[in-house]
Simulated scan of single mutants.
Amino acid sequence: MLFAAAATVAAANGGGASAGSGAPAPAEPRTPGLRSPDAGFARDMAVHHQQAVEMSFIVRDRTQDEAVRTLAYDIANTQANQRGMLLGWLDLWGLPKVVADEPPMAWMGAASGGGDDRAGHDGHDGHDGHGGRTADPASGALMPGMATREELERLGAASGRDAEVLFLQLMTDHHKGGVAMAEGCAQQCGTPVEKALAQGMVDAQRSELTLMADMLKQRGAAPRG
Rank of each mutant, 00 (worst) to 15 (best):
A135M: 01
C185E: 08
P24R: 07
D125E: 11
T191I: 13
L142Q: 15
A213T: 14
R219N: 06
P137S: 08
P26W: 02
T78N: 13
Q188M: 04
V53Y: 07
A119S: 13
L2M: 10
M171H: 08
S112R: 04
S207D: 12
K217W: 09
T63F: 08
G160I: 00
L87Q: 11
G16D: 15
E66K: 15
D125A: 12
G184P: 11
R83E: 09
H124F: 10
M143S: 06
L152D: 11
R60V: 06
D117V: 10
R206A: 08
M215G: 07
P104N: 07
R43A: 00
G131V: 02
L168C: 02
G145W: 01
A138F: 05
W93N: 10
H127D: 02
V98E: 08
M171W: 07
G88I: 01
G15T: 15
A182I: 04
L142V: 01
M1L: 14
R133A: 06
D122V: 00
G184Y: 01
L92N: 07
R206I: 00
A25S: 14
M201H: 02
H130K: 06
M85D: 11
S56M: 09
Q199A: 06
T70S: 14
L168E: 07
Q82A: 09
Q64P: 15
D128F: 03
A147I: 04
R83D: 04
G140R: 09
A46I: 04
R43W: 03
M181P: 08
A204E: 07
A17E: 14
P32M: 04
R149T: 13
V99F: 01
R30H: 11
G184L: 05
G20C: 10
L152E: 14
A157K: 13
V179F: 01
E164R: 01
P103S: 00
R83L: 10
L209E: 14
G16T: 15
L197C: 04
T31P: 03
V165A: 03
P32H: 04
M55V: 00
M45V: 03
I58R: 13
R224L: 13
P103A: 00
H48Y: 04
A19E: 07
A7G: 08
E153I: 09
T134C: 12
M212G: 04
W107T: 00
G156C: 08
N13L: 15
D61C: 05
G14C: 13
D38F: 03
G160D: 03
H49P: 13
R62M: 11
M143D: 08
S18T: 15
V47H: 01
A106W: 03
S18F: 15
E208N: 08
M105N: 00
D91E: 07
A67R: 14
P24T: 08
P96Y: 00
V193K: 14
P26Y: 05
K217M: 10
A106T: 06
A4V: 13
P24M: 05
L90H: 06
H48T: 06
D122G: 07
L209C: 02
